[in-house]
Design a protein around this nucleic acid. Structure first.
Lengths: 192, 192
DNA sequence: CCAATTATTGACTAAACAAACAAGAAAGGA
DNA sequence: TCCTTTCTTGTTTGTTTAGTCAATAATTGG
């Protein structure tokens, strides 16, 4: 038996909340911030998402569905695997060099993961998910002769993943496009 | 005219405070934590270091003197530049794989840098300082024929620096030595 | 030995915080 | 229409926080 309908869209609210957590991190984000960003009242947020930690967990899941899954889809897209990888690297450059860039939500989530075993397992799973997609694409590219045969798909996938995290950190301090480009140029040269 | 002497050593207190900030980050560290870690009372901390932000700034400076400067010294040490670089990479592996590892203090400082222009400038300067040392060592190694002549010192220095930050992030989620070793093996192969 | 100076101690303040409570509002089913 | 259910709004509560205040202790110079 349905009661009073919700006045806000939970997915929209989740996205608004994501942007706040993304910018300020978990502890620095207050419930007042979340109320203002979503437009929903406090009790409405509690009813819809549970407490602050539960909301954050849902935000992180939302983030991976919105940001990480498209990367995997891009890598698995048909056609040139090397082309897919190059497009991904380019999207990373555009991402960290964007004027709106304020770090990676993964970094925020890692802070919570230190005291939340479930969050840690979740992050580990998701990052491995991307690592595997990179490895698949690299393997395809090697087989197609689109990258040097000396490239080891697994190790190289890990390097690319690690570089993406490193760039997210470095770009917060110094958002020079020339720096990011230097790094990605070497990554591309590594593929041959 | 000297008054009552301080009962604690400021450098020791700074190191204790550093360990707390390192582990928990700025906002999650309370003054109670700092009192307990240093053994000094609250008012003593204020008298010696100023408020929480001022203390944190001094902690970050202490950190760079203690952690980053030795890296630069290692790179600038006489003898084989390639050997110096290899030793640095090995120290990174040992560092992020250590059971005590809980992330990099730079990541913690970056959060403060978002709202503190001075902190941002300081971090940028120090990271460039390490980047330059890496570049110097790479240049020396190229000239000595210890690394491939195709290595571009500047871009490669940036890659290594970015990888170190990326490893610090990745290792917080998954502290597998095999992962870290994969990444560093590719980095070493990159040098030729 | 006294006075000036600095450190320590413990209590205090005012604000911010997450979370809980309670009363009213809006919908559909009987 | 009335009743149950769910959402909304405003208030409150108890805790934690950074920072301050006032009183005491320890040291050196005179």
């Amino acid at each position: 038996m349905p009661g009073r309908p919700r006045e806000f869209d939970t997915n929209v609210a989740l996205e608004k909340a994501m942007l706040v957590f993304w910018k300020k991190g978990f502890t620095e984000t207050s419930l007042a911030d979340l109320e203002q960003a979503t437009g929903a009242g406090r009790q409405s947020l509690y009813a819809a998402f549970g407490d602050k930690h539960a909301l954050f967990s849902q935000v992180v899941e939302f983030y991976f569905a919105r940001v990480l899954q498209p990367m995997v889809d891009l890598l698995d897209a048909p056609g040139s695997a090397r082309g897919n990888i190059d497009r991904l690297l380019q999207s990373w450059e555009d991402y960290v060099c964007s004027p709106l860039f304020q770090g990676c939500l993964v970094d925020r989530a890692i802070d919570s993961a230190a005291s939340d075993e479930r969050m840690n397992a979740f992050l580990s799973r998701k990052l491995t998910f991307l690592e595997n997609a990179l490895e698949r694409a690299l393997r395809r590219a090697v087989e197609a002769g689109e990258v040097s045969s000396s490239v080891q798909p697994r190790a190289t996938a890990r390097v690319l993943l690690t570089l993406s995290q490193g760039l997210s950190v470095m770009a917060r301090v110094n958002q020079e496009r020339s720096y990011v480009r230097s790094v990605l140029d070497v990554a591309r040269a590594l593929l041959g």
